[in-house]
Simulated scan of single mutants.
Amino acid sequence: MSTPIGYFEQMYATSRDPWSFESRWYDARKHALTADVLPRRRYRSGFEPGCSTGMLTSRLAARCDRLLAVDAIEAAVRAAAERVADQPHVTVRAARMPRDWPDDTYDLIVLSELAYYFDDADLAELLDRVAGSLERGGDLVAVHWRHRVAEHARSGDEVHAQLAALLGLHRMARHEETDFLLEVFTSDPRSIAQREGLV
């Protein structure tokens, strides 16, 4: 079973920032690394499912012409929307993944601390949605906590192993630490230097 929605509702009922994203250096650094690892300077259309309070969203917004960020919890959606209210190219709305996955396509999809909450069936659907929504030449960025958590259906390492098995995607970058794994997958096997004609 995927992590029940009630777990997240309870977290946000007791705190506006239940994971302390606004105050922890660990998360500020990880969000900065996630934005900095993006292979392109600019993206036409980005999608961030599970945006929480929008701390990463605000960094991604600076790199996207259009960005959709969603979360299943209304309190998180309100917090994220307030954070990016001065950026009209960002849309924040409520949606439960994977069932409410949008029909649009994207040249950037960011899975940040999300996929380990899903059971086998929901994760398989999520990965199918990613594969169907990522445009040719688009980039998939994934970052996940590596330690075991009772509410997680699997570890971050297991999530990334399944992402690596997606047909048609190549791993462009991998940043591994004791606490988290950050990877970039793309359908364009060329390096950044090759893309810019340096090699």
Score class of each variant (00 low, 15 high):
residue 31 H to P: 03
residue 18 P to T: 02
residue 28 A to I: 06
residue 40 R to Y: 13
residue 5 I to D: 04
residue 15 S to W: 03
residue 36 D to Q: 11
residue 47 F to Y: 15
residue 20 S to I: 00
residue 13 A to G: 05
residue 43 Y to T: 06
residue 46 G to E: 02
residue 31 H to S: 06
residue 22 E to L: 12
residue 20 S to W: 06
residue 19 W to D: 05
residue 34 T to Y: 10
residue 10 Q to H: 10
residue 8 F to V: 05
residue 43 Y to P: 08
residue 10 Q to E: 07
residue 25 W to V: 10
residue 14 T to G: 01
residue 5 I to P: 01
residue 6 G to W: 10
residue 44 R to L: 15
residue 25 W to T: 08
residue 40 R to E: 13
residue 38 L to S: 10
residue 20 S to N: 09
residue 23 S to C: 01
residue 32 A to P: 01
residue 46 G to P: 14
residue 26 Y to L: 02
residue 26 Y to H: 07
residue 22 E to F: 04
residue 27 D to Y: 15
residue 47 F to H: 13
residue 12 Y to H: 09
residue 13 A to W: 07
residue 13 A to N: 06
residue 17 D to F: 00
residue 24 R to H: 08
residue 46 G to D: 00
residue 6 G to C: 11
residue 4 P to H: 07
residue 18 P to V: 03
residue 39 P to Y: 07
residue 29 R to H: 11
residue 33 L to T: 00
residue 8 F to D: 01
residue 32 A to W: 08
residue 40 R to S: 15
residue 49 P to T: 11
residue 46 G to I: 03
residue 18 P to R: 03
residue 35 A to D: 05
residue 22 E to N: 15
residue 31 H to E: 09
residue 14 T to Y: 05
residue 48 E to S: 04
residue 21 F to W: 04
residue 15 S to N: 10
residue 14 T to K: 15
residue 37 V to K: 06
residue 47 F to D: 08
residue 4 P to F: 08
residue 38 L to C: 10
residue 12 Y to N: 11
residue 4 P to T: 06
residue 30 K to C: 11
residue 40 R to T: 07
residue 49 P to F: 13
residue 41 R to S: 14
residue 19 W to T: 02
residue 14 T to P: 00
residue 6 G to F: 10
residue 24 R to W: 03
residue 25 W to D: 12
residue 31 H to F: 15
residue 38 L to W: 12
residue 45 S to T: 09
residue 6 G to D: 07
residue 7 Y to A: 11
residue 5 I to V: 09
residue 27 D to T: 08
residue 28 A to H: 12
residue 13 A to D: 12
residue 41 R to Y: 01
residue 23 S to P: 00
residue 24 R to Y: 02
residue 16 R to I: 00
residue 6 G to P: 02
residue 4 P to E: 00
residue 45 S to Q: 15
residue 8 F to I: 07
residue 34 T to K: 11
residue 49 P to N: 14
residue 48 E to D: 09
residue 46 G to R: 13
residue 6 G to Y: 06
residue 4 P to V: 06
residue 37 V to H: 06
residue 44 R to H: 14
residue 5 I to Y: 14
